[in-house]
Amino acid sequence: MTNKLDTVLQTAPRPIQLMTHVVAGYPDWETCSALVQTMARSGVRLLEVQLPFTDPLADGPTITAANQAALDAGVRPEDALKWMGEMAAALPEVAFLVMTYANIPYAMGLSRFVDACCRAGAQGIILPDLPLDEPEGTYAEEARRQGLHPILVISPDTPAARLDFLLPQASGMIYTTLKVGITGASKDLAPASLAYLETLRRRTQLPVAAGFGISQPEHVAALRGRAEVAVVGSHILGLVTRGDISAVEDFLRACTSL
């Protein structure tokens, strides 16, 4: 069976794809569903669904607060995956990716987690705090066996020797951060980030997704030709937190029309 992530990236109608992000159940299920529909309508074909966790180590204040709010509202991993399954069935043109932190799959059992993601229609799994050189790194093999891409997250300071270890095990795409830090909207993209993308592209045949700090349509435009995917997370979540769903649509349309 072909993986939808591959299909999206191979038949890219635009020079760059957008990958957006939602925290499952935030701010509530109804708004979250509407948000996903809006994203799909605005041309988004890659969508990251974060299962909320109490201690989201790589996330800045916007996403951390959304995780806490979702947990306070009682969102459980099973609920999140069930909801994602419904969204994936309703939006077959979108490749859904599950993102969360290691303790959630570890508590569920890694195999059960991969099965559950698969059944919920996920095309990939992103676990930023579960490196491949720890014993539970075997989840990656398990995911691949079930046709899911385990997506590695690297950063501009990942040394060459570490890349030599990581890149051969990557599949689907390489997700790189544009800065060394945590998630969050930035005013500018550093020229060094763009230069870094060029060196990364010389090292891998896989599509590159670049994120952390993207908050302007101009940022997305600047990534064209340097990455296949621009990841927009905190900026959109910030609009959602302010209750401005229509601004999300405007922003996404501006990103895709530039």
């Binding site: 579960l130 997250v153 950063s155 990942t158 570490r162 990581l166 060394v180």
Partner: peptide, 8 residues
Amino acid sequence: YVPEMLVP
């Protein structure tokens, strides 16, 4: 068990 960016 950390994000890659802490490894170096």
